[in-house]
Nucleic acid binder design. Structure first.
Lengths: 205, 205
DNA sequence: TTCATATGGTACGATTTCGTATCCTTCAAC
DNA sequence: GTTGAAGGATACGAAATCGTACCATATGAA
C-alpha cells in the first residue's frame, strides 16, 4: 500500500508537483512510448536521483500523471445546479459535454488512454467511468426526474442519455481526435441545440 | 514514385503478403511502439534481408499494414442496395455501422490510428474520411433523397446523419475501446432500433 | 559548528532495437 | 550441370533507454 510516502516535506511536495506537471506536458503531447525519462529530466531539470525517488519507474510516473489529469479534466463532468427551462438545461449539458470532450487536454488524455488501455486497464476503466459514463449518468438522472413533467416517453433513461450524448458528439469528436479540428464555443452550442431539438421532439409522446 | 517495385514474381507477391498479414497481427494487437521488427521476424519466419527488402523500414511496414486493413475494414461502409421500408433501411444502416465500428478488427485499427494520428496524419485522415465520415455521408445522401417522401424536417442532412450515427454509437463504442465490451448482433440491432425510433420521430414535422 | 539528509550532475551497465552486412543454401532458368 | 538471383540465419554497429551507482554540494537541524 502506501509504502513510506507518509512523510514529505512541504518543499518535497512542491518539487514532486513540479516534476509531475512538467512530465505531464511531455507524456500528453508525445505518447508514452515516445517520452523518455531523460527527456522528462531535461525539461524539469534536476537529477535522476530525485526523479526516481518520487516515481520509482516510468509506469508509476505515467500512472500518477493520468490520475491527476483525469481528476482535473473529468471534474468538469460534475453536475451543475440546473436553471432555466428543461430544454435550456439539456442544451447546456450537451454543450458543456462537447466542450469538455473536445478540449485540448481531454483529447490528449483520450489519446493516451486509447493507446494504453490494454496496458493500463485500470486507468482506462477509470477514464471511461468518470468521464463519458458519468456525464451521461447525470443526464439520465435528470431525464428520470423530469420526464413525466415534460410528457416524455422515456423507458430507458440511461440509453436515452447515452444516445443524446452520442448525437451531440456526432463526428465532431472524431474530427478533434484525428484532425485536430475542434469546434468553437458557438459551434458546440449550435450542435447541442440541434440535437436537443431533434431528440426532445423524438421523445415526445 | 513507385521506385522499382514494378517487377515482382508471383511468389514474391505471396511472400510479401504473408509478411504483411503476420505483421498485421502484431501491430494491431500490440502498439506500434511495442512491436519490434525482430518480433515480426520470429512470427513470420525468414530473414531480415527479405523483410527489409519488401518494407524498407518500420514506418513503411506500418503504413502498408494500416492501408491494407483500412481498405478491408472500411469497405464495409460502402452503401448497400436498400430494400424494405424507410425505417427498416435506417435500422439496417445503423446496425451495420455499429457492428463494423465495434468489430475486433476495427477497434484495433481505431486504437492504432488514435495513438499514431500525430505521427501518421495522412493515415489518420484517410481513416476518418473513409470510415465514420463516409458512412454518415451515405446516410446523409439517403436522407436527402427520402426526406420529402417521408415528410421529414431535415434542413442539414449531413448534420442529421452524423447525429444519428452518434446516437447509435452512444457509449457502446467507448465501452468497446476501453473495456473490450462489444455488443452482440442482437444488441446492435436493438440499439439501432431505439435510435431510429427516437430520431425518426424527432425529424417528423 | 557538525552532521545527516536531500539533491544535482553524471557516469555507467544492461538491455533493446533498428537497420546493415556477411555467409551460405536453395531454386529456377538456360 | 552451370550460373545467378533470391532467401535464410545470424552477426554486427550504432544509438537509445531504463534504472542504478557514485561523488560533490547545499540545506536544515542539533
Amino acid at each position: 500500500m502506501g509504502k513510506d510516502e507518509i512523510d514529505l516535506t512541504e518543499k518535497q511536495i512542491l518539487r514532486r508537483g513540479e516534476i509531475l506537471d512538467s512530465a505531464t506536458k511531455l507524456f500528453l503531447n508525445e505518447s508514452y512510448g515516445r517520452t523518455t525519462m531523460d527527456n522528462v529530466l531535461t525539461l524539469v531539470g534536476g537529477s535522476k536521483r530525485t526523479l526516481y525517488k518520487y516515481f520509482p519507474n516510468k509506469e508509476a510516473l505515467f500512472t500518477a500523471i493520468i490520475e491527476q489529469v483525469s481528476d482535473r479534466v473529468l471534474s468538469a463532468f460534475t453536475p451543475l445546479p440546473r436553471e432555466g427551462t428543461f430544454r435550456e438545461a439539456l442544451i447546456d449539458m450537451g454543450a458543456r459535454y462537447l466542450q469538455v470532450m473536445t478540449s485540448a487536454e481531454c483529447i490528449s488524455l483520450y489519446r493516451a488512454m486509447v493507446a494504453e488501455a490494454p496496458h493500463f486497464p485500470d486507468l482506462a476503466d477509470n477514464f471511461l467511468q468518470n468521464g463519458p459514463c458519468r456525464a451521461s449518468q447525470h443526464l439520465a438522472e435528470y431525464l428520470r426526474s423530469h420526464a413525466k413533467n415534460n410528457r416524455l416517453r422515456i423507458t430507458d433513461p440511461d440509453l436515452c442519455a447515452a444516445q443524446f450524448m452520442g448525437a451531440v458528439r456526432g463526428n465532431v469528436h472524431f474530427h478533434a481526435v484525428f484532425n485536430g479540428r475542434v469546434p468553437t464555443k458557438k459551434e458546440t452550442r449550435m450542435i447541442s441545440e440541434t440535437a436537443v431539438e431533434t431528440l426532445l421532439n423524438g421523445w415526445r409522446k
